[in-house]
């Protein structure tokens, strides 16, 4: 496996009006290999989403470098898919149009949309979108609905399809399942695992839920505060063996214990207690 993402000595400082600047991340190092499924955990406000936005290119670090395949990419692009918790779909487009939006945008400019080739390609893309919808467990009758006519779980399924049709090298998911009810959530987790196994896409999945992280991730990264100023870094980084992911008994318990041990060692006893 080769390095796909490198976070080198990342520091992120936000200016706060009338107060001292807030350091969110400091001295953050992380290497991510191609094909990994990284689950990122940590307490609220520890910088998980900031880290995701850095990798996405939606935000620049105050210092340090984010390298994607060895290059600094200053803004989001088609190789990095994104599924946020909210606003994941375009409200003015139907499910089908949401899914085909990316390839149509990429392949045709405004004049290209007037050519017969566009209409032919559009038909092909719609077929692909229908197949993806089916793969996501959605009904063909949902294809012409608008996002606000879908449930939260259905919206997130469409959002994943929308990202996957671009065949991105990296898929970044920011608490994508946190607004879902437990049944829908576990269904979505299974679906995501299957999709990851089928496509081999590198996935970064931010979650509050450690059980979810252990079920999904091939590797779990925990961010935590490192000093009184409240800036965060990686305090635990653990590979999850395949058998521990599928087994929710002793094997997973062992991984969890090792993770808690690392968190304790990093000087975060409260977080360790919360996890145990």
């Amino acid at each position: 496996m080769s390095k796909l993402i490198e976070l080198e000595d990342i520091c992120v400082i936000y200016p706060v009006h009338g107060q001292a600047p807030k350091t969110v991340l400091a001295g953050l190092h992380l290497d991510i290999q191609r094909g990994e499924f990284i689950a990122v955990c940590g307490q609220t406000g520890c910088g998980k989403s900031t880290m995701l936005r850095l990798i996405l290119g939606a935000e620049a670090p105050t210092s340090g470098r984010v390298l994607i395949e060895g290059e600094v990419l200053p803004r989001p692009d088609r190789n990095r898919g994104y599924v946020p918790q909210k606003y994941s779909l375009f409200p003015d487009k139907t499910v089908l149009d949401n899914i085909t939006f990316g390839p149509e945008m990429e392949e045709f400019n405004i004049l290209g949309r007037l050519t017969p080739r566009f209409f032919k390609r559009r038909t092909e893309l719609r077929e692909t979108a229908h197949a993806l919808l089916q793969q996501m467990g959605l009904d063909p009758s949902d294809a012409h609905k608008y996002p606000d006519q879908l449930s939260g779980g259905m919206q997130q399924r469409v959002a994943i399809a929308q990202a996957l049709i671009m065949r991105p090298k990296i898929l970044l998911m920011d608490e994508a399942f946190s607004a879902l009810d437990p049944t829908t959530r576990s269904g979505m987790q299974r679906l995501l695992r299957t999709l990851w196994a089928e496509t081999g896409t590198t996935i970064l999945f931010v979650t509050h839920n450690l059980n979810e992280a252990l079920y999904l991730g091939t590797r779990v990264v925990v961010l935590g505060k490192q000093n009184s100023q409240g800036s965060s870094r990686v305090i635990a980084d653990l590979s999850v063996p395949a058998d521990a992911r599928t087994d929710d008994g002793q094997l997973r318990r062992d991984v969890l214990d090792r993770l808690i041990h690392q968190v304790e060692q990093a000087g975060e006893p409260q977080l360790a207690e919360a996890y145990s």
Binding site: R53, L56, G57, A58, R75, P76, D77, R78, R80, G81, Y82, P84, K86, Y87, S88, F90, F101, G102, P103, M105, E106, Q162, A163, M166, P168
Partner: peptide, 13 residues
Amino acid sequence: PREQIVKGFTLGA
């Protein structure tokens, strides 16, 4: 929402 704009870029716009 900023997410929509970021999403647009990730979809090749």
